[in-house]
Design a protein around this nucleic acid. Structure first.
Length: 512
DNA sequence: TTCCGACAGTGGGGTCGCAAT
DNA sequence: ATTGCGACCCCACTATCGGAA
């Protein structure tokens, strides 16, 4: 199959807003694909590279290359070239990758170049990624969409399922069962603004502490343990103490879901930055493990002794977990039966925060484990802080925000009347607010370099955020975590905005 | 007919490891 | 030795479609 055909379909998919039409277009293309094209066509149309990381970003993509007049590239040839490109390493590799990318782009037509660029930067912007590709795959093969979706979640890979389905047909889906040693996409949580809201929605539920660490899925098969992240990366080699802990448990074969986190000597959680730095260390693991040991803390069991527990209610999965894992290695929790238990749930949240944790997750005790879904049966509740900050500048947006000032630079007052930038945000803005702020900030503009528009510091905006973290990037030595706009405060003047001192005083646990 | 769940899009900061300077 | 870049952790929020109620 020619790359030009993919690029054309991608453009058509992007041009329609109807999801059903996107699905139909993808299904048509999948039916056209030959067996050997499938491992490439499917991920490409889902906006992904089968190779995963390639070491190609904006820098390596370099300057635009004159496009070819006629399409000639096949999808398999492109895949082979990208595989070769990903294998380049060592000194001079960046220049070599740049050269190979230039060669590939030179062989592509204008439309193919646009598609390849989106693919390589992870921004296909066609309004269809995995979920729509799954629907398209179902449409192309006549398999029930729900079955295809489930198989993808259990295989942890769209490509694997697509290959089996397109070559063997719907019966192939039977093969995709929960298997110890093969990671499944983890269940995710929605947010709720309060414990009362969460308990109100779920009724009989468990309230569990939410640890600010790294999600981990632990697979043990006899003496073999494997550890996977939320995106199913294998991190077994980085966390020997977690492997050891899994081998200490009583069961021989299981799959558990939990969090790894570093605690200090007093048993209080260390900062997310410290835990994440440790888990990210790959080279000298022994030294990193000595400096920042981490512990697994589990909250769910997906499989025990060869029994798949995914469809059991959470109450039963947790009973299995409790049989297998001693209490200190489980997340603290309390069970609440409806609104009457609300005071207990709120007290549990307060205690959890006092112990230094992030918040709680409220879970429906009757719900199955919805792999890969952000099910409404898990609701996280975290405290939200707000500040009144001053807009110092804004950046021109991309994609659907092209032509709008989007990303705000946020400043807190210093005593001398200057401003210290505390971070940026583009979140929480409606289209109407985006339009309004673009107009308003242009009136206040003092300069525009094509990317950043600097403004007179006159506009006050209320910002919600999850906490402070240390920063080497910003002058106050701290930055806001997960900042988002609540509303503009046109009733406030810049001199009414929060100061660096008040921000720091509100978070005594974080020192710049 | 209205409501709401699921998705895609728009990017944020930090850290690590590797290559370039 | 330091800097730049890419990958991958953590993540909030809005707009939209289409099935459920």
């Amino acid at each position: 199959m020619l790359l030009a055909r993919l690029a054309q379909v991608s453009r058509e998919v992007a041009a329609t807003s109807a999801r059903s039409r996107k699905t139909a277009l993808l299904a048509e293309l999948f039916r056209e694909a030959q067996a050997a094209d499938v491992p490439v066509v499917i991920p490409y149309l889902a906006g992904r590279l089968p190779q995963g990381r390639l070491g190609v970003g904006w820098k390596v993509l370099g300057r635009p290359v004159a496009p070819a007049a006629e399409p000639s590239l096949t999808v398999r040839e492109v895949d082979a070239r990208l595989t070769a490109l990903g294998e380049v390493s060592g000194p001079g590799s960046q220049a070599e990758r740049t050269r190979l990318v230039g060669e590939l782009m030179g062989a592509a037509t204008q439309e193919e170049q646009r598609f390849l660029l989106g693919l390589l930067t992870g921004e296909v912007r066609q309004g269809a990624l995995d979920a729509v590709a799954v629907e398209g795959l179902a449409g192309a093969t006549g398999a029930p969409p729900a079955d295809v979706r489930r198989a993808v979640m259990l295989a942890g890979s769209l490509q694997t399922v697509a290959q089996a389905l397109l070559t063997e047909g719907p019966p192939a889906l039977e093969r995709f069962r929960l298997t110890v040693g093969r990671p499944v996409l983890p269940m995710l949580a929605h947010s709720a603004s309060s414990v009362a809201e969460a308990v109100g929605k779920l009724g009989v539920c468990a309230v569990e502490e939410k640890l600010d660490g790294i999600r981990v899925q632990v697979h043990r098969d006899g003496g073999t343990v494997r550890l996977y992240t939320r995106t199913l990366d294998d991190i077994t080699g980085r966390l020997p103490e977690v492997t050891a802990a899994a081998l200490e448990l009583r069961g021989e074969r299981f799959v558990l879901d939990g969090e790894v986190i570093a605690f200090d000597a007093d048993g209080r959680p260390r900062s997310f930055q410290e835990t994440a730095g440790r888990v990210g260390s790959r080279v000298d693991v022994a030294t990193a493990a000595e400096a920042v040991p981490v512990s697994p803390v589990f909250f769910d069991a997906l499989s025990v002794d060869g029994r798949d527990l995914l469809d059991l209610p959470f109450a039963e999965r947790h009973a299995e977990l409790a049989r297998l894992v001693p209490e200190p290695m489980r997340v603290r929790r309390t069970v609440v039966s409806g609104p009457g238990g609300l005071p207990a749930a709120e007290e549990f949240l307060a205690e959890t925060l006092a112990r230094g944790h992030e918040g709680v997750v409220v879970k429906d005790l009757g719900a199955p484990y919805s792999a890969g879904r952000r099910g409404a049966s898990w609701l996280k509740v975290k405290p939200v802080h707000t500040l009144d900050l001053v807009v110092l500048a804004a950046e021109w947006g991309h994609g659907r925000r092209t032509g709008r000032l989007s990303n705000l630079h946020l400043g807190a007052r210093r005593e001398d009347g200057s401003y210290a930038m505390l971070g940026k945000t583009f979140k929480g803005l409606t289209d109407a607010l985006l339009a309004w702020q673009t107009e308003r900030l242009r009136e206040l503009a003092v300069s525009d370099d094509g990317h950043v528009v600097t403004v007179r510091p006159e506009l006050v905006v209320e910002i919600a955020y999850d906490g402070l973290q240390r920063s080497t990037r910003y002058p106050a030595g701290v930055t806001l975590r997960f900042a988002r706009v609540v509303r503009y405060r046109e009733d406030k003047r810049p001199q009414d905005a929060d100061t660096v001192e008040t921000v720091l005083a509100a978070h005594p646990e974080v020192r710049p």
